[in-house]
């Protein structure tokens, strides 16, 4: 995968993450599930910033940033607090996988960016009830 293709794939992943977190944010009760709502909001804010950073990185690499799809399929029903947290874990795992691919397909500043994002996603998955794994983002290893 070329560095530009890796950045575009990562940007596409951020578009999906943002969409799903937006839906999750609309379904979580900020009064009854305050902690979960705060974590979802923080995740949304982080992924939005990543999307914006990636847009700049793609342009810097000479590409035309990939656009978001009109909608994305939710990973699971996402109704109860447990289901919302499960959906968030899936999103972070998927993001970690695209970040890991970006680590392997880029270099220097772009790789440093992807490394930071990979660790951040792996740790954020824990905040939604995930467990540590041997190879976050690279379960094939």
């Amino acid at each position: 995968m070329t560095p530009l293709a890796a950045l575009q794939a990562t940007l596409a992943g951020e578009h999906a993450a943002l969409y799903v977190y937006g839906v999750l944010g609309g379904r979580v009760s900020s009064s009854h599930q305050r902690a979960l709502a705060a974590r979802i909001t923080a995740a949304y804010t982080t992924h939005r910033a990543r999307r914006d950073q990636l847009t700049v990185l793609v342009r810097g690499a000479g590409g035309d940033p990939v656009a978001a799809e009109p909608s994305y399929q939710l990973p699971g029903p996402g109704r109860t607090p447990a289901q919302l947290a499960a959906a968030a874990r899936v999103i972070e795992r998927r993001c970690a996988a695209v970040y890991a691919e970006a680590v392997g397909s880029t270099s220097r500043a772009d790789r440093a960016w992807a490394l930071h994002a990979l660790s951040d996603a792996a740790v954020r998955e824990l905040s939604f009830g995930g467990s540590p794994t041997e190879f976050p983002g690279a379960p094939d290893l």
Binding site: A100, G104, E125, A138
Partner: peptide, 16 residues
């Protein structure tokens, strides 16, 4: 790149 990906994943695991 493959090695970088593996090391990056190991870094994420330690961060977890």
């Amino acid at each position: 790149g493959a090695f970088a990906r593996a090391l990056g994943s190991m870094a994420a695991s330690a961060a977890q």
